[in-house]
Design a protein around this nucleic acid. Sequence first.
DNA 1: AGGGGACTAGATAGATCGCTCTAGCGGTAA
DNA 2: TTACCGCTAGAGCGATCTATCTAGTCCCCT
Lengths: 193, 193
Amino acid sequence: MPAATKDRIIDTTAELFRRYGYTGTGMKQIVAEAQAPFGSLYHFFPGGKEQLGQETIRRSGQMYRELFEAIADPAPDIVTGVRSFFEGAAAVLEETDYADACPIATVALEVASTSEPLREATADVFNSWIDAATARLEAEGASPSGAREAAISMIASLEGAFILSRAFKSTEPMHVAGEHAVAVVRRALTREE
Amino acid sequence: MPAATKDRIIDTTAELFRRYGYTGTGMKQIVAEAQAPFGSLYHFFPGGKEQLGQETIRRSGQMYRELFEAIADPAPDIVTGVRSFFEGAAAVLEETDYADACPIATVALEVASTSEPLREATADVFNSWIDAATARLEAEGASPSGAREAAISMIASLEGAFILSRAFKSTEPMHVAGEHAVAVVRRALTREE
DNA sequence: AGGGGACTAGATAGATCGCTCTAGCGGTAA
DNA sequence: TTACCGCTAGAGCGATCTATCTAGTCCCCT
């Protein structure tokens, strides 16, 4: 017996953030889409939209990190893991008519100058991604500084590719970014010998 | 005798877009910031916010392309040109307390699913950047397909680095992305021999 | 049985949204 | 002068925004 309503609100919010961003998503719109009662919104999130946004960001960030692990774990090596991750992102984009991109990026750009708590939430999420990717690269033999730089570069490429793919309604940028990320990983691994 | 008011409105809109995004920027806020009369807004932009947004996107895109050319032209080669461009972007971010990032990226993510005219404007801008960078790479010896992929990869890295740098309030991602863009350019130039 | 807390339900406040409208200003041309 | 037109000026419309508020429902626990 889960607190299904709260989860449903967060999941719906994440999906709306991906399509319309933070300021573009309304509270009424959220409860309508989530088929949740309006009163529950401020019951579960007394801090209002900012709190809902923060929890949505952190949860989405965690889900993406787990998704990355889930793809990277069974992969024979990190190179093919990274390639699969980017290919998967491209496939999702295509399936959803380029609507379901990363929910963090849009919000991160919007709120960086308006809400310090939300900005910190996006920073924490990106940091956790960088740490996760760095750890994996180090485990496969990259130097600490090389691993971190490669991780940052990969994530920047991923997010930038989301922007371009969404604007073009094309998976080309995501495929190109994926190959670029693969090259970055290879370089980080081989430079340490 | 320029139509100074119209230009001032567009410039102000571009700056507000960078900080607050498309939906986060209000029409009243624009005229207040631009010190322009409200009536002039709908005189110059009878198409309303969507028209103003479109003109702002296209003009900002053109300015950024010209900025890239202005940095790349006097550079001894494209590698140092690219490096200078990323270093310049990092410096601007730091100077403005990470507020003045790319005005296109934020809007592109926000409007891709809500306004086809605006989405097309962002796509046109990104395309013009890709074409400009591709031409330069080809001129220095890269293969056509290699040049295009490198251009896409560079721009994706740039935009992704804007997101991360803004979220972290740090220039580290921009510097890392710059070095990786340099590596991408080098690879595109040397692979064609 | 009954008390209490978690949750639902929605009307509504107060502000702000994009936009329209009319009125008037100032310079140019007939 | 008079007529015209590009532009200024801002009041105000209907809609929508976030958030608050009261009332009511449900179910567990004693």
